[in-house]
Amino acid sequence: MKVTVKDVEHIAGLSRLTIPESEMEKFTEQFNQILNYADILEKIDTEGIEPTPYVLPISNAFREDVPQPGVTHEEALENAPAVYNDGFKVPRVIE
């Protein structure tokens, strides 16, 4: 077992996901299956091979520092569940 029920609870917490108690075992098992599958890659000898964070053969895609209009104030707040003082109203942020 690579991950335990406790790890899954922790990751679910970080991701703001609620996993029903009844499905905990199932998720833990699936997590482990995925990790075990990834283990196959561990068997390959990667000695001397640079990590590959990107697979595209391009770099330095830049934008010039010239301002362009975005969306309006009203458009920006259109999706806000609640508005307060011209901003997105959010619940208390600290425990």
């Binding site: 934008r63 520092d65 010239v66 301002p67 362009q68 975005g70 969306v71 309006t72 104030h73 920006a76 707040l77 003082n85 011209d86 901003g87 997105f88």
Partner: peptide, 20 residues
């Protein structure tokens, strides 16, 4: 003059949510 990953202005002190 603009943000790191988009062309919105970085001007300080504007009405909230106008450089977005």
């Amino acid at each position: 003059k603009t943000k790191a990953f988009c062309s919105c202005s970085t001007e300080f002190g504007s009405l909230p949510n106008t450089h977005v």
